[in-house]
Design a protein around this nucleic acid. Structure first.
Lengths: 340, 340
DNA sequence: TTGAAAGCGATACCAC
DNA sequence: GTGGTATCGCTTTCAA
């Protein structure tokens, strides 16, 4: 915003017509002669007319803007989702606000208040967990992508994987490869992703279904919220130091898995043979590791597509077909479980 | 936006005062008695009043919104900048639009047109290159962070490293460690970062200043714009296959460096001894590699701070102290140049 | 086909 | 200290 831009009035005056006609032509609504259309369009072009969205939004009660709330865009899993969601929304004529909440409820509430004031048409949560419902008279459509926590809005859609099944499949993969004692490693940075208990649940369930006892000593959880890589390495190192024995590791996140692999390698263990490891997210971390880390592909592209699709439907006033969309995941085995 | 929210009129009516008074109280402007203030505030609170920013923006010709244009937020270097810039702007009361331009001029122009229509107060380019100037009557403040290309606006500030000096220092580091034939590897994905010729320039300059001939065979450039990791590995592999000899590699980017390191390891070369490698950005890629990759820390935090500072100054109507801010960089040596 | 005018919600000038 | 009212730029209804 800076110097006064040309308005619809200027165009109207220059074209010798009314603002109503100019508006009609510009929005291809109502009716007008071909002559006036060409005239108006020419003048608008000459004057470099650009519609003022603030005015339009005020009048139409719609800003064509969506807010993207994510704990941290510098996390590559979230960033990939943000990229894709923004792209799809842009293609549909919506602009996207980016808000980094740090998974902090207070911060998030403050953001949401501001966003409602800014009259966003909808909200997309990407990753993380929300504990507090939205406090507002507004009632806007909300989509949760790989995010837990409800807002209390009347229209919300959840998109994500069946996380319990994901960790179940991870655990199953290790046992299928011959593991007998499988540890679970989770650092709180993985909380950024979604509620931890869902993820641990599948691990527990697998053990129970196969008549195995849950050994608390093999459930490693880190407290910090930074550098999950290093923290995971420490957890595993400590565990080994205490003389605990395991031959498989379910790591809740590829970064965690990478830290685990590094720690095991340092201790001289043959990863993929002595100990098998599986991570999650199919991110760059699992691919660049040596040995390459087995992981779970969670299908971010489909999540983004289904989420945006549902949001656009709600914005059109339709009722989304489903409120809980489960995107299929897929175990991708690499050297850390296949050996070789 | 959804059901009609309470407006300043509702508050005025309920409080038995005028909208002018309500506005004054809410904005702490003008004068009003303590009694009316308390009354208005109480009612506003009871009604869950939230100011309508569209109206405010229309009236004040300022949206308190900034657009962040970046080629690709899923690139972790850019994402880190986006995260930091957004945080600082948020603290200053500005919301941020996120726009992924894919470094495509046409796409970028379309974005900018929309953003001007949306009445953004300013634009921050983060990474990449822009070839086309902004076509618009609007004149808004622009900040370029690690980005090349001017917009033609009257107020713009550039923030970044001296990229020529960065590659000069990278080259110098390798020679200082005893290298005698140093290759340059750049894949076009590194173009996302900034103009390539600046980066190559330092390499050339170092060779010239030290009376060395530039060997075209050792300048490896990839054409694609994806997975710089794999592409870099191929470039280096091909180069070795052709029997070319080198003992040092300047990789324009940590991902590129990681690809190079992987390729060299696969060929059985001792990275850090037979061949030394240095990357750039001090990203996660250089740290998780084994051996750890020497790199150049480019100081994203300071870039974000200086950039936002300059933008806020311009938004206040001040003239920024400098239009070209050079943020210092720093070579970080690790195993790939130190050996060991 | 075209236009006059009301109104979206907030601000600010100027009277009182 | 308080309030009436014009105004920001655009859309839309209704009449001509």
């Amino acid at each position: 915003m800076a110097k006064r831009a040309v308005s619809i009035y200027d165009i109207a005056r220059l074209a010798g017509v009314s603002t109503a006609t100019v508006s009609n032509v510009l929005n291809q609504k109502g009716s007008y002669s071909e002559r006036t259309r060409d005239l108006v369009l020419r003048i608008a072009d000459e004057q470099g007319y650009v519609a003022n969205f603030a005015a339009k939004s005020l009048r139409e009660a719609s800003t064509k803007t969506i807010a993207l709330l994510t704990p941290d865009v510098s996390n590559d899993f979230f960033a990939t989702l943000v990229l894709k969601v923004e792209g799809l929304l842009h293609a549909a004529g919506y602009a996207s606000y980016i808000c980094n909440t740090a998974n902090d409820d207070e911060r998030e509430e403050e953001y949401v208040r501001g966003l409602i004031s800014k009259q966003v048409d909808g909200i997309v949560y990407i990753g993380g967990t929300t504990r507090a419902p939205i406090q507002a008279a507004a009632d806007l459509p909300v989509v949760h992508i790989d995010h837990t926590g409800s807002t209390g809005m009347s229209r919300e859609v959840y998109v994500g994987n069946d996380m319990s099944q994901v960790s179940y499949d991870m655990t199953a993969t290790l046992f299928a490869r011959g593991c007998e004692r499988v540890a679970l490693v989770s650092v709180s940075a993985s909380l950024y992703r979604t509620a931890e208990h869902d993820q641990a649940a599948g691990y527990h369930r697998y053990l129970m279904e196969h008549d195995m006892r849950l050994d608390e000593d093999l459930v490693l959880e880190g407290p910090h919220r930074q550098t999950s890589l290093i923290e995971a390495a420490q957890l595993v190192g400590d565990c080994l130091d205490k003389g605990r024995v395991f031959d498989g590791v379910v790591a809740l996140g590829d970064r965690v898995a990478l830290g685990v692999v590094n720690a095991l390698k340092e201790r001289g263990m043959a990863v993929g043979h002595d100990v098998r490891v599986i991570g999650m997210d199919d991110s760059i971390y699992s691919r660049i590791s040596s040995p390459a880390i087995s992981t779970v592909r969670r299908n971010t592209v489909e999540m983004a597509e289904r989420g945006v699709e549902a949001l656009l439907a709600m914005l059109r006033g339709e009722k989304p077909a489903q409120t809980h969309i489960v995107v299929p995941h897929e175990v991708v085995e690499r050297a850390t479980t296949l050996g070789g």
